[in-house]
């Protein structure tokens, strides 16, 4: 069964005020037969995956299963030894991260990649300036137009009160959101997020995810995210792909996959009786 077959055809409610988009036929991202090994370790061992426009696809699995490797291959950071990747119907294998950003593929990082010497506002404005491609050495970064756009962006992420704070002084939740905000500033169609909630305090986690899901849905951005928190996956993912030893062990809606006893026991590592509510 193909990934698109597994997808529900109708829109369905997600978090309050946000509606999951109706899925279309042509995948936005399509990976076929991806293989990559580091020495004897197979980080990708024949990955086939379609990501449909507008969907939120969660990738789960144990450490070392190859989840981040998939993101790195898709964003041009790593080149697979075999296989192909198409984005919007065009092959993208071998293209650099810079070129892929121009095509609309953004990413965030497990360890947020913020410019730590700059304020949150400057980080956002720099991403906006990068998108504008205006690299005059004499135009101030915080000129009114970019400042206003950066403030609007930060406001959408709930970061406006922290605009003048240096990035290295943020707590982990804010760092994660700022990292994703920088990717969103580039107006991607597809964003790949590596563990957007790791390190975020438990009390903040859901509000962080709700914020970023709301912003991404509003901006009609398709999202692939690596996640370890099953509650987050269950609440916010349209589909979930279970990674195991460089392969996709299961793929489908979270309500199905996360109740699969084999997935619970062999991949997630918990006994079925202890599955979350």
């Amino acid at each position: 069964m193909s990934a698109s077959d597994r997808l529900g055809a109708q829109a369905e409610p997600s978090i309050e005020g946000v509606t999951r988009p109706r899925q279309q036929d042509a995948p936005l991202l399509s990976a076929r037969g991806l293989k990559l090994a580091f020495g004897g370790v197979k980080a990708a061992d024949g990955i086939d995956l379609d990501v449909m426009p507008g969907e939120f696809l969660a990738i789960i699995g144990p450490n070392g299963a190859g989840k981040t490797t998939f993101i790195n291959m898709t964003t041009g950071y790593l080149r697979p030894q075999a296989g192909s990747i198409e984005y919007d119907g065009q092959p993208i294998l071998g293209l650099s991260p810079r070129v892929l950003v121009g095509k609309g593929i953004g990413r965030s990082f497990q360890l947020p990649q913020l410019f730590t010497e700059h304020t949150v506002l400057e980080n956002a404005a720099l991403a906006i300036a990068a998108r504008a491609g205006l690299w005059s050495p004499l135009v101030p970064l915080l000129r009114p137009q970019w400042r206003a756009e950066a403030m609007a962006l930060l406001d959408r992420f709930g970061l406006a009160p922290l605009a003048e704070v240096r990035a290295d002084a943020l707590n982990e939740g804010a760092r994660k959101l700022a990292d994703i905000a920088m990717a969103v500033a580039l107006q991607p169609r597809l964003i790949l997020m590596d563990e957007p909630t790791s390190g975020v305090a438990a009390a903040e986690k859901m509000s962080v995810v709700e914020t970023l899901v709301r912003v991404l849905r509003d901006a009609k951005v398709t999202a692939v995210f690596v996640e370890h928190d099953m509650e987050v996956v269950e609440r916010f993912a349209d589909r979930v792909a279970v990674w195991s030893q460089g392969r996709i062990a299961a793929l489908g809606p979270p309500e199905t996959v996360l109740k699969d006893p084999a997935v619970l026991r062999d991949v997630i590592g918990i006994e079925p009786a202890h599955s979350h509510a």
Binding site: T75, S96, P97, R98, V101, G102, G106, R107, F109, Q113, L114, F115, T116, E117, H118, E122, A125, L126, A127, A129, A130, R131, L134, W135, S136, P137, L138, V139, P140, L141, L142, M182, A183, L186
Partner: peptide, 30 residues
């Protein structure tokens, strides 16, 4: 000139090379 340059996106990106060169590349910047 240097003061204006350091306040520009290019100047700010220069500091980005020291802290987060990877991010620069993933912003589409060489």
């Amino acid at each position: 000139l240097v003061r204006a340059y350091l306040a520009s996106p290019m100047g700010r990106a220069l500091a980005g090379i020291k802290t987060r060169e990877t991010r620069l590349e993933f912003m589409g910047v060489s």
